[in-house]
Amino acid sequence: MVTGFKNEQCELTSLPKHEEVVLQPLHEDYKKVVLIESILIGLVCVVFGFIPLFANLLVEEDFHLSTYMLVSIGVGVVIAILQAVIRILGVDKKGYALRDHDLIYKTGLINIKTTVVPFNRIQHVKVFEGVLLRSFGLSKLIFYTAGGNFGDLIIPGVSKDNADSIRAFVMQNIEKQSELVESTQNDEDEE
């Protein structure tokens, strides 16, 4: 075995706790990105709400407003506002942290969720910049694992420099880890 700390029996309470880690919030400008996105999505919702009315305008000759059209518009508007509010308030709840051996990402206004990915399970890291993100100098970090569906971890709204340095840090750790794994496996083979 190579590592310094061996896997002896230990008290559950003495382990490092991921709940107590202080999280780094996302970049402030990310809120603006979310605001713009929510407005666009909201507009789409409202347009969908207006579809029955438009359809009626085009097809019928004598047009009159029915309650069913009003309800449809109302639903569209309510969904538009709700999603915008939830998304924008949600930004403050998101945060991430790097520890020596893993990466923590916390999110959620309604469903509060903490996700942890150990470095020795990350296969590769991608820094992604969309048009909107790039115009604010931000990027999105994607950590790929072998965990199949939903096995990847995505951190949106990190400044470009930060993202690059996180990526470099994690990649460096992955290399270190894989060397360790290989040497342990060789040990096992020799046994």
Partner: peptide, 15 residues
């Protein structure tokens, strides 16, 4: 989950 993370991260056993 802290216990399992500790096991994953300290042992370096491949998956």
């Amino acid at each position: 989950s802290d216990l399992w993370l500790y096991e994953i991260e300290s042992a370096n056993k491949g998956w």
